[in-house]
């Protein structure tokens, strides 16, 4: 079963991506629209698929993959199934960066991508502060330093909200923070994909360290792993993944925490084998949630981050309950 997990999840990703391209207020032939768009033929189907649905689908897949992968990496590093990718501080840092753009109107030249750019810078600054504070980057210190920086960035974000120049700016900021992949274009992917590739590579190269850490830091070090360097690289990769996804899509809760939980039994609980399946499952889950957002009755659209939290929280409670019964 463990060997089939990744191929099955990748098939699910393809299926959900097709469903996402097919879902919307207008019925459009997906394959014909895709073909027209790729060939540069100016048709209605090409416009709907290429300009609206494809960016939304690719963004939801990329954001989900980033969150799923970062959750699996961070839980492996901290040896804690409750570790959330937001613990690195990058998530709140990105939110703060974007909020400052809404408040001060920075980077006007970047246009629509200004919040994303500021979000990336905010995530980078939070990461730098966290690593400086953690010093040796020992996993136990990372969690404390990440919490401290998250709290600081959260407090700064609350201050920005408190002194919002007008109710519209505050509303725009709050809606952005709730998390969504709608109204974004392929240019947003240009921000996300390099960060996703670099963060993913950094994490993937440390998969042996994550396996060794299963038996504790002492065992990992006795097996020749340099914990300080490896931990820093995993934290850096995780922060890049989370920071960039929050910068693009706002806060999408529970994916990074929940997806590794769901996938872990399918890969025999091995932290090194958890990475890619978690990325695939995260991609499929966020994309599916975005399809659900579009399928809900018309009116005020529920935000993607709200839906993932609404669905994720009960699922998480059920998982905790199941685990609790196992130990009783």
């Amino acid at each position: 079963m463990a060997r089939l997990t990744l191929p099955l999840l990748l098939a699910a990703v393809c299926g959900v991506a097709f469903l996402s391209l097919a879902s919307g207020s207008t019925a459009v032939a997906v394959l014909a629209g895709l073909r027209d768009w790729l060939l540069g033929i100016n048709s209605a189907a090409a416009m709907v698929i290429g300009e609206i649905r494809l960016p939304r689908t690719l963004l939801s897949l990329a954001v989900g993959a980033a969150l799923g992968l970062s959750g699996a990496a961070l839980q492996g590093l901290l040896r804690n199934p409750l570790a959330d990718p937001g613990l690195t501080g990058a998530s709140q840092g990105a939110a703060l960066g974007a909020a400052v753009v809404f408040y001060f109107g920075l980077f006007p030249a970047a246009g629509e991508a200004a919040p994303a750019l500021a979000g990336l810078l905010g995530a980078g600054a939070a990461l730098l502060l966290m690593l400086t504070l953690a010093g040796s980057a020992r996993p136990s210190l990372v969690i404390l330093a990440g919490l401290a920086i998250s709290t600081l960035a959260g407090a700064a974000l609350a201050t920005v909200l408190n002194f919002a120049p007008n109710p519209f700016a505050m509303q725009e900021l709050v809606f952005w923070l709730l998390g969504s992949v709608s109204d974004r274009g392929l240019d947003h992917l240009a921000f996300l994909l390099p960060a996703l590739a670099l963060g993913g590579l950094l994490v993937w190269r440390q998969r042996r360290l994550l396996a060794a850490l299963s038996l504790g830091e002492e065992v990992a070090r006795s097996m020749g792993f340099t914990l300080t360097r490896g931990s820093r690289l995993v934290v850096l990769g995780t922060a890049l993944l989370v920071g960039s996804s929050v910068a693009i899509a706002g806060s999408i809760g529970f994916v990074g925490l929940l997806v590794p939980h769901l996938v872990r039994p399918l890969v025999d609980h091995r932290p090194d084998r958890l990475l890619l399946p978690s990325a695939a499952a995260g991609a499929a889950l966020v994309c599916l949630a975005d399809v659900c957002v579009r399928l809900l009755p018309p009116g005020r659209e529920i935000k993607l981050g709200v839906l993932t939290s609404l669905l994720g929280a009960p699922l998480f409670i059920w998982l905790v309950w199941k685990d609790r019964r196992r130990w009783l």
Partner: peptide, 10 residues
């Protein structure tokens, strides 16, 4: 080591 434990159900 003197004490050892697996974080996961390996």
């Amino acid at each position: 080591p003197q004490t050892c434990d697996s974080a996961w159900s390996l």
